[in-house]
Amino acid sequence: MDFDLPESAAAVREGVLAIAGKYDQEYWSRCDAEKRWPEEVWRELVRGGWHALAIPEEYGGGGQGLLELAVALEALAEGGAGGAASFMYLLTPAFGALTINRHGTAEQKREFLPKIASGEIETCFAITEPDAGSNAINISTQARLDGDHFVVSGQKIWISGVERADFLVLVTRTIPASEARPRTSGFTVLLVDVKQAVADGTLTYRPIPKLGTNTVASSMVFLDDVRVPVERVLGEPDQGFLVMWDILNPERILAAAGGVGSGGLVLRLACEYANDRAPFGKPIGANQAIAFPLAKAKAQLELARLMTYKAAWLWDRGRPCGSEANIAKLTAADAAWQAADRTFQTYGGMAYSMEYPIARMFRDARIAKNIPVAEELVLAHIAQHELGLPKSY
């Protein structure tokens, strides 16, 4: 059993860390305060092909996999981006590139992947609905076939990045949940031309005011008879459930990688402060009350990293990884939150000052325990599928 990173992943880590190192915490705090996308960093990632790692070389990408994407995201977060890094690797590199490469037709790959690799196209993902949050089975956004188009109507919520996206990876119902047998049938995943639908007035969106992760907007999305050519189905009509899970598992793995990187970043800042701060004549880090919680946070982050890499490794090999993806997300989110909480405590009253980045990192860390799946549902999944306990929901 070899725990060394593959040379490809090690090189990715070094390359992304070099980019992250150019941008200090003042930069990330400005992006957050101004609620703007970190365009300068994104452009550097695109120029270097660091966003297109999982796109095959024949389409202009790096020819690598989810493991390398996870390492890149972790490095960007740890190198300074913190929670902002996750969306930079989820929206287009994962939701767009990974999904199209895995489930797209030959024509779809030729149309989309080179443009994603060059930075010409960006994507986002829409599954969550006001009345169907974590219970995706009950989504009601309807796509009905009308000649050579699907006509889509419905509403989505918490859709991040739609304001930037050229295409939306949209999960719809072509058979209502009440009629689907089995209930996992009747899903169809579509590639929606956002700009065209907005111009037609059939797609509108409204940003949701939120506590953190302000470098990308999250919106309510309204679909009113959006027309989507049948050629833009990902996978097969009515058989999109497997496509959907092949999006959700990488999302959880990458969210875990972001948690590991963000936790590493706040822990580094805590240790720097604990080494420098000496109000009683010696660094506060010499006190076990400060040192031990930080040491425990470090241990938790290392364990979360191992499971994150394992889950990505499995996904790249086409092997089942649902439990591993869930465990990675659960442990990384909690480890990142504990690291942020202990960093806040280490900084004392100064953590509350907006002159430091700790308050921003603290609020950004908290959401990971709720998205992309609530930790209670992860625990229920583990209890049922790994321990053989009765289903609880």
Rank of each mutant, 00 (worst) to 15 (best):
A9G: 10
V16N: 03
L17R: 11
A20D: 01
A20R: 03
Y23V: 13
D24M: 10
A33G: 04
W37P: 05
V41L: 11
V46H: 04
G48L: 13
I55K: 03
L67S: 08
L69P: 05
L69F: 09
A70G: 09
V71Q: 14
L76P: 08
E78T: 04
E78K: 09
G79I: 13
G83L: 04
A84K: 11
L91M: 12
L91D: 09
T92Y: 07
T99L: 15
N101V: 08
N101S: 12
H103W: 05
T105I: 02
R110A: 15
P114D: 10
K115I: 05
I121S: 11
T123F: 00
A132H: 03
G133A: 13
T141N: 10
A143V: 01
D146V: 12
G147N: 00
H149G: 12
G154K: 03
G161P: 01
L168F: 11
R173W: 02
A180M: 07
R181Y: 14
S185E: 11
S185L: 07
V189N: 14
V194E: 09
Q196A: 15
D200V: 08
T202P: 06
P209M: 00
R232I: 08
L234E: 08
E236H: 08
P237G: 00
F241D: 07
F241A: 10
V243C: 11
W245G: 03
W245T: 02
I247H: 12
E251D: 09
V260N: 04
G261K: 08
L265E: 04
V266G: 00
V266S: 00
L269G: 03
A270I: 06
A270K: 08
E272F: 01
Y273G: 02
N275C: 14
N275F: 09
D276G: 14
A286F: 13
A286E: 15
N287R: 06
N287A: 13
A289T: 14
P293G: 10
L294R: 11
A297W: 01
A299P: 02
A299K: 07
R305E: 14
M307C: 11
C321Q: 02
C321P: 06
S323V: 02
T331F: 15
A332V: 05
A332E: 07
A333G: 14
A333E: 02
D334L: 07
D334K: 06
A335L: 03
A339R: 05
D341H: 03
T343C: 15
T343L: 10
F344I: 01
F344N: 04
G349F: 04
M354L: 11
A359M: 12
R360D: 09
A365G: 01
I367L: 13
A374Y: 10
E376C: 02
Q384N: 09
H385M: 11
H385D: 12
E386Q: 07
G388C: 06
K391S: 03
K391Y: 04
